[in-house]
């Protein structure tokens, strides 16, 4: 059965003509898988007036781009996008099909997997292949995130997975790279659509700034209570950082859900990441381990957060934080608004 299915595909998510970062990262990860399997790597691109994006998809590693360009595909909707992706997958039969674990990528992959009656692994953070069996090994944190599980789909094709943003690495774009563009037509009518997009509102809210922040101060349950958590805000304000929290802290109601960092929250890659009173459960670590510099402050010397930390301070956060705030205050300028702007850009 699986002999008929060949090639690695990546769904290229675009919004208003701009390709999502995770799609480019997946082209990098997909390139590795395709090379191991000795097959080609293809991007799947749907939208309105998106042909111009094919060049970029190829430059980031694709050998082929399957394109469906149609006015009804202007904005993402499950019904229309699903139809296009299923048409392509049934016709060209890839063995592996990857999607970014964004709201749209997860939504699309779930619908497509149901119609193709195939397996789908959610929120993958590691990808590999078993060459002999041509099996995708999609691994993800499981059971609240203290352990990794490798999920296999042995008998159904394509093998599908959604992959967390910012955990795979995009290749350096090569503008000389050649590729093939395959355009496909589809029958779609706006009047058949049961979902209408009334408007799209861009919101540069807290979570957006968290994803873009250059410095993040993240607090965990080790701070003890919500009152002590104000020290996190104080440090953030002094150095111009954004504030985040662990799942525990959000579940306890100390912070809004948008500020949760980890597998089920935001994945962040700041230049400097303070993990204060954070134990370092796997589900948290996958959301921050690609930060440039990680500082761990925790009184438990054996906490796993120290394994990923660049600098570790074993000590009580309630003792260390006030000292840190005080010493930073002494050497940094007090520019109020400008300071809190410094960590963002």
């Amino acid at each position: 059965m699986s002999k008929e299915y060949r090639g690695v595909w990546v769904f290229i998510e675009q919004n208003e003509g701009e390709i999502e970062g995770v799609s480019l990262e997946l082209l990098g990860a997909g390139r590795t898988l395709a090379d191991k399997l000795g097959v080609s790597l293809a991007g799947v691109l749907l939208g309105k007036n998106v042909l111009a994006l094919c060049k970029q998809v190829i430059s980031y590693g694709a050998d082929e781009v399957y394109v469906i360009d149609h006015p009804v595909l202007e904005d993402y909707r499950t019904e229309s996008y699903m139809k296009g992706v299923i048409l392509l997958a049934e016709k060209y039969r890839p063995e592996i099909f990857l999607y970014g674990a964004t709201p749209n990528g997860k939504d699309l992959a779930s619908a497509v997997a149901t119609d193709l009656s195939t397996g789908l692994t959610a929120d993958t953070t590691m990808l590999d292949v078993d060459l002999e069996k041509r099996l995708l090994e999609a691994s993800r944190p499981a059971f609240g995130g203290n352990i990794m599980a490798t999920i296999l789909c042995k008998k159904h094709r394509p093998q599908m997975a959604t992959v967390r943003p910012k955990v795979m690495k995009a290749l350096e774009p090569d503008s000389e790279k050649q590729g093939v563009i395959i355009e496909e037509n589809i029958e779609l009518h706006e009047e058949d659509m049961r979902t209408k997009v009334l408007k799209i509102v861009k919101d540069v809210s807290k979570s957006a700034s968290l994803a873009d922040a250059h410095i993040i101060v993240c607090g965990g349950k080790g701070l003890g209570d919500q009152q002590n958590f104000t020290l996190i805000y104080e440090l953030a304000e002094v150095i111009g950082a954004s504030v985040g929290g662990t799942r525990d802290v959000v579940e306890a109601g100390w912070l809004p859900h948008e500020l949760q960092i980890g597998q089920t929250g935001e994945t962040v890659t700041p230049k400097v990441y303070f993990a204060v009173g954070v134990s370092g459960a796997i589900q948290h670590v996958v959301g921050m381990k690609n930060s440039d510099i990680i500082i761990a402050i925790n009184k438990d010397a054996s906490a796993p957060i120290f394994d990923v930390a660049t600098y570790g301070i074993v000590g009580d956060a309630l003792v260390i934080l006030p000292k840190l705030i005080q010493q930073f205050k002494e050497i940094l300028t007090e520019k109020g608004g400008e300071i809190s702007y410094a960590g963002k850009i």
Partner: peptide, 21 residues
């Protein structure tokens, strides 16, 4: 009726860990 199965469970490889102050 389930196409996916759990192949293996593991704790991810440990990172080196950095400098303890």
């Amino acid at each position: 009726g389930s196409p996916t199965i759990v192949g293996k469970m593991f704790t991810p490889p440990k990172h080196e860990g950095g400098k303890r102050l």
